[in-house]
């Protein structure tokens, strides 16, 4: 991850485009390319590398291990089917994989809500929104210091809303109940935090 000192603001900034040289990214990309050409061994290697990370993400959102593992299965079936599209869009491979997992969890939550409601809203785990650490950095996820600094600029209550949405997959309404704020407030907090995060990352 390369960072440059921005003399005008005295802040660190990061290139907004993903860098092709991030370690680990290249390996994931190569595996995805082989998946696209129907190499089952590549899917297995990809699974060994990222399935534990994706299961971690899914567990936070779905809370139940059986649901999370079912979702993980769906994710890899989809990855196999859509690996050919990855080349076209050229994001970061791990970001793409995490997105597929999160979207699957969000869709499953919809149908599982009544069942999840008993456990999902306990919120015994305080969401943290920590910036990706070494394992994820190695696979080309981290925005490193810039993202951490930008998160710090968001006030704590707003950051908590962001975390409840991103990490635990809560809807606006569920966040509003969890933090005890009106729905409209929560919606505008979330939207404004995201946009200020974007402005900050770009600066």
């Amino acid at each position: 991850m390369s960072t440059t000192d921005d003399a005008a603001t005295g802040r660190l900034s990061v290139p907004s485009a993903p860098t092709a040289t991030e370690p680990g990214s290249a390996e994931l990309e190569a595996l995805l390319a082989r998946c696209a050409s129907r190499d089952a061994a590549a899917l297995e290697a990809l699974y060994a590398l990222v399935a534990p990370i994706l299961l971690g993400v899914l567990l936070k959102m779905l809370r139940r291990r059986d649901l999370a593992e079912d979702a993980l299965q769906d994710v890899f079936v989809k990855v196999w089917q859509q690996a050919g599209q990855f080349d076209r869009i050229r994001g970061r491979p791990l970001a793409w994989l995490i997105s597929i997992a999160r979207y699957r969890a969000i869709d499953l939550q919809r149908s599982q809500r009544p069942m999840l409601a008993l456990t999902a809203l306990h919120l015994e785990l305080e969401p943290s929104l920590q910036v990706a650490g070494t394992a994820a950095d190695a696979m080309g996820l981290g925005l490193g210091g810039a993202l951490a600094r930008c998160l710090d600029e968001i006030a704590a209550p707003q950051r908590r809303c962001l975390a409840l949405a991103y990490e635990q997959g809560l809807s606006h309404g569920e966040i509003a109940r969890a933090v005890g704020e009106p729905l409209g407030t929560v919606k505008s907090w979330v939207r404004r935090s995201l946009l200020s995060l974007r402005r900050c990352i770009e600066s």
Binding site: S16, P18, A51, P52, I53, L55, G56, V57, L59, E69, L72, I89, G91, R92, L94, A95, W96, I98, S99, S128, L129, Q130, V131, A132, G133, A135, A136, L141, G142, L143, G144, L147, L151, L162, Y166, E167, L194, L197, R198, I201
Partner: peptide
Amino acid sequence: LRWEDDLAGLNGALEPVQP
């Protein structure tokens, strides 16, 4: 895709869990 890239870094502690 830009948001996916930006926000993926938020996967913080990312505690891997062996399936």
